[in-house]
Computed example of a mutant assay.
Amino acid sequence: MRRWPRIAAWCVAALAVAGAAVGSAVVYFGWYDVSATGPHTMPVYALLDVASTRSVKLRSADIKVPDLDSPQRIRRGDALYRAHCAQCHGGPGQGPEPYALGLNPPPPPLVTSARERPAAEVFWIIRQGIKMTGMPAWQYRMTDEQIWDVVGYLRVLPTLSPQQYRDAAPPGDPASGAASSASIAPTEAQPSDRRLGDAKAGRDALQQYLCVTCHAIPGVPGARHYVGPSLDGMADRSRIAGVVPNSPDSMQQWLLDPQRIKPGTAMPALGLREQDARDIAAFLQTLSNVE
């Protein structure tokens, strides 16, 4: 009987060595895809998410939260958010700038941050940043008081409608109604270069346009703080946004210009190319629960 613990220990050690060898081979021979056009695998994404969540919780535990509700703080936070945060995280009805659309992992929308995380955690994330996400450490660019201003504003942001967010924007701000670089459609391919929608290409495009930061999409890893509805079973729904019949053509038009289809919607225009919208629409038609 005494031999079994020894055998078990050797088996565990052998498995550990084998796992380390396989992991080393994956890294050394370049088998893991590091391209920004390919998302992390589900296990890698889940591991990074747990590591980030637990790390932030531990390191923010002793932070004392000041009064965040003063109108002056919220006004200052509004200006700071628009100057430094909206470019990557967007706002109600406003998409991020084009350079943020290619980040991997994608920057999440912050309209849910105050609901999902305590103020101390949000402060720590803004101040310290997070490795390998593109989120910088703002302690070198803003004072702690300014960071608390942003945290205070993030508590108000979820209560703003797209129209209220636009109305509060200063003249010249992209959210005020002026065209932003994210809303300017890129040059389209000539008609002879266009093709039918490709579901696989659409699944890849979802990552580049940050769809996974707002919607849970079956089989596609992404942020867990969702703003919009799940897209599970999208092909089975009769209407898009409760407005237009659900068809590939209607979905393409919705993706290209949601405000035209449903004025006041929180869905931003992300400057999709027509072909990318066609591909995404084709992929969404594969999300059916009907057997």
Score class of each variant (00 low, 15 high):
Phe123Glu: 05
Ala120Glu: 15
Gly30Thr: 02
Met142Arg: 15
Gly19Tyr: 10
Cys211Met: 11
Gly172Gln: 05
Ala20Cys: 13
Trp10Lys: 11
Leu80Val: 00
Glu121Ala: 10
Val212Gly: 14
Pro170Ala: 12
Cys214Glu: 10
Leu101Val: 01
Gly172Tyr: 04
Ala14Leu: 15
Arg278His: 05
Ala114Asn: 10
Ala199Leu: 06
Gly19Leu: 14
Pro170Asp: 10
Trp124Asn: 04
Ala13Lys: 05
Leu58Lys: 12
Thr286His: 02
Pro186Lys: 01
Leu160Gln: 03
Pro221Arg: 09
Val56Gly: 07
Ala137Glu: 01
Ser238Phe: 01
Leu47Gly: 06
Asp198Lys: 05
Leu255Ala: 05
His84Trp: 13
Arg115Thr: 10
Phe29Leu: 11
Ala100Cys: 12
Asp236Thr: 01
Ala168Gly: 08
Leu48Tyr: 12
Tyr153Thr: 02
Arg239Ala: 14
Glu291Tyr: 08
Leu196Arg: 11
Pro171Phe: 02
Lys57Tyr: 03
Met132Leu: 13
Thr286Lys: 04
Val111Leu: 13
Phe283Leu: 02
Pro162Tyr: 10
Pro92Asn: 11
Glu291Ser: 12
Arg155Pro: 01
Gly152Ile: 11
Lys131Pro: 02
Gly233Ser: 06
Gln259His: 13
Val244Asn: 01
Arg117Thr: 03
Asp144Thr: 03
Pro170Cys: 00
Val111Lys: 10
Asp78Ala: 10
Ala119Gly: 07
Val122Thr: 15
Val17Gln: 07
His40Gly: 03
Arg194Lys: 03
Ala235His: 02
Gly134Ala: 07
Arg203Ala: 10
Asp167Glu: 15
Trp254Arg: 00
Gln259Tyr: 03
Ser247Gly: 06
Gly197Glu: 12
Asp198Thr: 08
Cys85Leu: 08
Ala201Met: 13
Pro245Tyr: 05
Val111Phe: 06
Val26Cys: 10
Pro106Glu: 15
Pro71Ala: 04
Trp254Glu: 01
Ala13His: 08
Ile261Cys: 00
Ser192Glu: 15
Arg75Ser: 14
Ala175Ile: 10
Gln139Asn: 12
Val220Pro: 02
Cys214His: 05
Glu274Val: 09
Pro107Thr: 09
Ala51Asp: 12
Pro106Lys: 10
Pro218Gln: 07
Arg73Met: 14
Glu97His: 01
Ser52Gly: 08
Ala175Met: 00
Phe283Gln: 04
